[in-house]
Amino acid sequence: MKYLCLIYGDESAWARMPKGDMGKMNEDYGSFTESIRGSGHYLGGEALQPTTTATTIRARNGAVTTTDGPFAETKEQLGGFYLIEARDLNDAIQVASRIPGARTGSVEVRPILSFS
């Protein structure tokens, strides 16, 4: 079963982070990604640029409005994601709890809706 792990965190803290810590964080992400590739959980994953680069689009009755910023102002912002294959929710929780971002922010685990 597929799950999307959405990684939320305070991106301003990320921006303020000293170079050394940043390097450590990247290393942690590198080795985590390697480990879930090895265990067969990994389907995909990316880090996102900060919400200052985000654009929100709405199409209503044929009219498109474009606004800057994310859909909602929140204390924690979506900063990246992993798409994983897991046996069940417990397995997915095990994977998600090892995502480095879970230590400072939070990870939302969402089962993928299957239409088949």
């Binding site: 079963m1 046996r87 069940d88 929710l89 417990n90 397995d91 685990v109 089962p111």
Partner: peptide, 14 residues
């Protein structure tokens, strides 16, 4: 059902 919460006794670590 949807999130597939397993029907199991958690492992010793959990």
């Amino acid at each position: 059902r949807a999130a597939r919460i397993p029907y199991e006794v958690p492992s010793a670590s959990e």
